[in-house]
Design a binder for these strands. Structure first.
Length: 416
DNA sequence: TCTGGGGTCCTAGGACCC
DNA sequence: TCTGGGGTCCTAGGACCC
C-alpha cells in the first residue's frame, strides 16, 4: 500500500462565474455567463446552472443564448478576479510552501511535509475547502493522489464543490472506468483517434501496448498519454517557472488588410508584448506572427534574429514584414485576427551591454539605432509607471478597440 | 449566427555541419 | 562520382490547456 496521497490539486469551480454570484446575490442559483452577449463575443465562464444547459467557456455568445434562453450575461467585476484568486492561493500557502500555481484559479500542492501538522490528505483537502468557503466565499474542488496527473483527474471528478481522495492501491479501480478525455492532453482530436481504435476509457488506454499508442498519436504524445494511463507520472510540484514566450493577439472582425490597419494593430500588439518583456527584464530572438483569415484559417510566419528584441519599434517592424509575407501569400483574403509573439527568451540585462554593437537597421535606412529605441521605450515605460497605462501609447485612434478589455487580457498573462 | 486571449509542447522537413 | 549518419537550428503547422 505505501504512504498516503501527497499531492493535492485545488481548482476553483467556474471561477469567474462564482465570483459574480458571490458579489451579486441575485445571480446565485441562476444560469449566468461572464463575457459575450447574445449577439456576439465568447463566453469566458459559465455558472454550473448554465453548464447544465450545455453552456461552456469559449462558446460564442449567440450559441449559449440559444442553448439557455434564460441565461444572464454579465460583464463582470474583472478587476476583482486576480486579488480574490490570490487570497485562495494564500490559503494553500498556509498549508505548504510547495505550491505550483498553473493558472489564475488552480494549483498543485505537495503536502508530504505538512501532514504532521494538518493530518492526512483527506483532512487537508477538507481544511482547504472549508477555509476557502469561509474566508473567500467560493466553492473549490480538491483532488488528492500520489501523482499530479491523478490528483488533477480526481479534482475534475470531484467537481462541483467536492473532494476526492484516491487511496494508494486504489488507482486502477479509480482510473479504469473514466473516459479517456479526462487524461491531461487528450482533446477532441486525440479522443476521436483513440475511439476509432475502440479506446474509450483510461482502462482501455492502459491496456493498449505503448508502441501501439505511439504509432497512433506520434511518439511523444503517445508515450506520455500511455504513461499517464498506467499511472506513471514522474512530475514533481515545482514553483516559479519562467514563461518561454510572450505574446498578444487581437481579433479584428472581417477586414481587407490595409497598410494602416495592419500597422496600427501590430504596433499596438508589439507595444503590449515588448512592454511586458521589459517589465520582466527579458528579450527574445524569435518573432512569430499569426494571421487568421476567414473560416478560422491561420497562417504563421516566424523569424529568428541574431540579436534578441525587446523594443516596440523593432518588434513592430519585424512583425509587419512577417505579416505581409503571410497576407500576400493569401492574395485577396480578408483577415480576422493578428497575433505577435516573441520566444527564445533570454535575460535582457545581457543585452544592455551590446547596445553599441547594434547595427543600423537594414530595412529602414535612417531609422533610430538600437540605443535610441531603448531610450524611447524607457521613457514611455516611465510615463506609464507614473501616470497610468494609457497615458501614452503607440496605438492610433483608428483602432476601434472592439476586442477584450485589458483587464481580461491581464488575467491570462503568465509570469514573464 | 460565425467563434477571445494567454500560453505549452510536438512533428516534419530542410539547411547546414562534422 | 556518389556516398553515411548524427546533431543542431530554423520554420510552419497543429493539438491542447486555462
Amino acid at each position: 500500500m505505501g504512504p498516503g496521497p501527497t499531492i493535492l490539486h485545488a481548482d476553483l469551480d467556474a471561477f469567474y462565474a462564482s465570483v459574480e454570484q458571490l458579489l451579486t446575490p441575485q445571480l446565485r442559483g441562476r444560469p449566468i455567463a461572464v463575457g459575450g452577449s447574445p449577439s456576439g463575443g465568447v463566453v469566458l465562464a459559465a455558472s454550473y446552472e448554465a453548464k447544465a444547459f450545455g453552456v461552456a467557456g469559449g462558446m460564442p455568445g449567440w450559441r449559449a443564448a440559444r442553448l439557455c434562453p434564460d441565461l444572464v450575461f454579465v460583464t463582470g467585476h474583472v478587476e476583482k478576479y486576480q486579488p480574490i484568486a490570490d487570497r485562495v492561493m494564500d490559503v494553500l500557502a498556509d498549508v505548504t510552501p510547495l505550491v505550483e500555481r498553473i493558472s489564475i484559479d488552480e494549483a498543485f500542492c505537495d503536502i508530504s511535509g505538512a501532514q504532521h501538522l494538518f493530518g492526512d490528505a483527506a483532512a487537508i483537502g477538507a481544511l482547504v475547502r472549508r477555509r476557502v468557503r469561509q474566508e473567500v466565499g467560493l466553492p473549490i474542488s480538491v483532488g488528492a493522489a500520489r501523482t499530479k496527473h491523478l490528483a488533477k483527474i480526481a479534482s475534475q471528478v470531484a467537481k462541483p464543490d467536492g473532494l476526492v481522495v484516491v487511496p494508494p492501491g486504489g488507482e486502477r479501480t479509480f482510473l479504469d472506468p473514466l473516459p479517456v478525455d479526462l487524461v491531461w492532453g487528450v482533446g477532441p482530436v486525440t479522443a476521436q483517434r483513440l475511439a476509432a481504435r475502440g479506446i474509450r476509457t483510461i482502462g482501455d488506454l492502459a491496456a493498449t501496448p505503448s508502441p501501439v499508442v505511439e504509432r497512433l498519436l506520434g511518439h511523444a504524445v503517445g508515450h506520455r498519454l500511455h504513461a499517464m494511463a498506467v499511472d506513471e507520472d514522474p512530475r514533481r510540484v515545482a514553483g516559479g517557472r519562467h514563461a518561454h514566450s510572450v505574446g498578444a493577439q487581437s481579433a479584428l472582425g472581417r477586414h481587407r488588410p490595409t497598410r494602416e490597419l495592419v500597422r496600427a494593430t501590430l504596433a499596438h500588439l508589439a507595444d503590449r508584448v515588448s512592454r511586458r518583456l521589459r517589465e520582466g527584464g527579458r528579450a527574445g530572438r524569435t518573432v512569430t506572427v499569426r494571421v487568421r483569415f476567414t473560416a478560422m484559417r491561420s497562417v504563421t510566419r516566424s523569424l529568428t534574429l541574431t540579436q534578441p528584441v525587446a523594443t516596440t519599434l523593432t518588434l513592430t517592424e519585424v512583425a509587419e514584414r512577417l505579416a505581409w509575407s503571410a497576407i500576400t501569400d493569401q492574395a485577396g483574403a480578408e483577415i480576422t485576427l493578428l497575433a505577435v509573439s516573441v520566444s527564445r527568451l533570454c535575460d535582457q540585462r545581457v543585452l544592455q551591454l551590446e547596445l553599441d554593437l547594434d547595427p543600423p537597421d537594414p530595412w529602414r535606412p535612417g531609422s533610430p539605432p538600437g540605443a535610441a529605441r531603448w531610450a524611447v521605450d524607457a521613457s514611455m515605460d516611465a510615463i506609464r509607471t507614473r501616470f497610468g497605462r494609457d497615458a501614452v501609447g503607440y496605438a492610433p485612434a483608428l483602432l476601434t478597440h472592439r476586442g477584450m478589455p485589458d483587464e481580461f487580457r491581464e488575467l491570462a498573462e503568465h509570469e514573464v
